[in-house]
């Protein structure tokens, strides 16, 4: 009888071990199991979020967020013990990223998505990889630095953005007489600034630098003032999968601790291939340091 129990126990352990081998390391993570089954990691990328996630000259998605995601893909390979995992790129937009992550079409969204608490009901985020906030861009020589300088002038914002809310709140708080005009998107906003429809355009500072780098005369515009909002960017992952999320966080912590994060940052921003020039700020360096959790 004793022998029977022992045999059963051994075979049970062997069976568990065997199943474990089939889904090596996938554990209780539905995302990892899915990746193991289909043999590729599905990365959602943006097409024009320069320099985070965009289509490069070789028609492949490149950028700061994409590089970070490749580090996660390497960790997934190690975790599943499968070096043959491939990457499948799926283009997403601001409107399709949610349905695509909700129905499991993408495992990682590597773009320029702001992490906020309301959105966390729908998706999960990895560590903060970038910090931006609302600033204002104007023509050089306009004498505009802070939002207070806009009294009696016209300020443009992209309709329905956090920037719009932040700028309107700042104007109301300081009791300023600023006329706010909402534009449909950044290209319309930049056009409005260029054609003197507006005196200044408010948006995330990194986007403003990006718009300047694309304009005909990069020295004609300036980004100025203090931050009027706080927008941390992070890589987005499916919700309810803490195992997968933890794997991603380990990768990020390791990158931040080893200083590799700073190298990747410098590669894209200081100055990046797209002429954008934003040296690593003390604020972001601090964020990297505090997120470098020990093992």
């Amino acid at each position: 009888m004793k022998k029977f129990i022992l045999t059963t126990a051994i075979s049970a352990i062997a069976a568990i071990g065997f199943t474990g081998a089939a889904f090596a390391g996938a554990g209780d993570s539905p995302t990892l199991q899915k990746i193991a089954e289909r043999g590729y990691v599905s990365i959602g990328h943006r097409e024009t979020s320069v320099p985070f996630s965009y289509i490069g000259d070789a028609e492949e998605p490149i950028g700061y967020s994409i590089d970070l995601c490749h580090n996660i893909v390497d960790a997934i390979k190690a975790e599943l013990g499968n070096d043959n995992l491939t990457v499948k790129y799926v283009p997403v937009t601001g409107q399709t990223r949610i349905p695509l992550i909700a129905n499991g079409s993408i495992d990682l969204e590597c773009g320029s998505t702001t992490n906020n608490l309301t959105r966390q009901k729908q998706v999960s985020y990895l560590s903060t990889t970038f910090i931006t906030g609302t600033k204002i861009a104007s023509k050089v020589g306009s004498g505009i630095t802070e939002i207070e300088d806009l009294a009696g002038k016209v300020l443009g914002v992209s309709a329905g953005t956090t920037n719009e809310k932040a700028l309107k709140a700042a104007i109301a708080a300081n009791n300023l007489d600023v006329k706010v005009v909402t534009l449909k998107d950044h290209s319309q906003g930049w056009l409005a600034l260029d054609t003197d429809r507006i005196d200044a355009y408010g948006s995330d500072d990194v986007l403003l630098y990006g718009l300047i780098s694309k304009s005909a005369d990069t020295s004609a515009y300036q980004v100025t003032g203090r931050f009027l909002s706080f927008d941390p960017y992070a890589i987005m992952v499916p919700r309810n999968d803490s195992t997968f999320e933890r794997l991603g966080r380990i990768v990020m912590s390791d990158l931040m601790r080893s200083g590799e994060m700073e190298n990747i940052y410098n590669k894209w921003f200081s100055p990046g291939p797209t002429k954008i020039n934003m040296p690593l700020s003390n604020r972001l360096r601090g964020a990297f340091d505090t997120q470098a959790y020990p093992h």
């Binding site: 799926v90 399709t96 349905p99 695509l100 129905n103």
Partner: peptide, 10 residues
């Protein structure tokens, strides 16, 4: 919004 959600692919 709906087509990718329903089809399960982009």
């Amino acid at each position: 919004f709906l087509v990718p959600l329903v089809l399960g692919r982009p």
